[in-house]
Simulated scan of single mutants.
Amino acid sequence: MGYIHVYTGNGKGKTTAAFGLALRAACADKKVFIGQFIKGMDYSELRVPEFIKNIEIEQFGRNCFIFNKPTQEDIDAAKKGLKRIEEVLKNKKYDLVILDEVNVAIYYKLFSVEDVLEVLNKRDENVEIILTGRYAPKKFIEIADLVTEMKEIKHYYKKGVKARKGIEF
């Protein structure tokens, strides 16, 4: 039986935790698909498939618009990504599917909670799912089998430290 995990909260580490589980699954000969919503920039983790063949990653964002209003192109990219997730869940090729930053995509109204639930309901019952991002919708928390909230206590960003390659991106 596959379970649904939610990694949320305002602290650092949601995507990192998801990638940690992806690594563990891949090392156990499981196939992993990671779909990154919002993100369209060159993050270091995009190189993972060069090193671990049973992890696939696709980005469904154009750029990081978080400080601006999403454009129609951002919405279209996210919806196209959700359609891709639906295909991935239907093909029964993967043991673990990660919807990275899906909660943020919903928060910015790129698609709805109901849209995601409809896609998740089409999954094979053995597929493990991880939903990441701040602002996890209440409905995701209700349906999830595991919920972890990352809480920021202290962050060097507040001291002016910029995102560092290999650590934050």
Rank of each mutant, 00 (worst) to 15 (best):
V113E: 07
K138C: 13
I143T: 03
D124K: 12
I141D: 09
V127M: 04
I106W: 02
L110M: 06
E118H: 15
V127N: 01
N121G: 13
Y107G: 04
L131K: 02
S112T: 13
E114M: 10
I141Q: 05
A105L: 06
V104T: 02
N103T: 00
K139W: 09
V119L: 11
E128R: 00
A144K: 04
I129N: 00
I141Y: 02
D145L: 09
A144F: 08
K122Q: 15
L110W: 03
F111P: 00
I141W: 04
I141S: 07
V102G: 05
Y108S: 08
D124S: 14
A105F: 06
I141K: 09
I143K: 02
T132R: 04
L117G: 04
D115Y: 13
A105C: 13
Y107Q: 12
G133I: 05
I130H: 00
V127C: 10
F111W: 10
I106L: 04
D145H: 12
R134V: 02
Y107H: 10
S112Q: 10
A136T: 05
I106D: 04
F111Q: 09
I143Q: 10
I129F: 12
E128Y: 11
S112K: 04
I141L: 00
I130N: 08
D115A: 15
I129H: 02
F140A: 04
A105Y: 08
K109C: 14
E114R: 10
V119M: 05
V104Q: 06
E142D: 15
K122I: 11
V102L: 02
E101V: 07
D100T: 00
I129Q: 05
L120T: 08
Y108G: 03
K109E: 15
L117S: 07
V113Y: 07
E142R: 11
E125I: 09
R123N: 02
K138I: 15
E128G: 11
V104A: 07
I106H: 08
N121E: 08
R134C: 00
L146F: 13
V104H: 06
Y135L: 07
D115L: 15
L146G: 03
T132S: 01
Y108V: 05
K109V: 12
P137K: 07
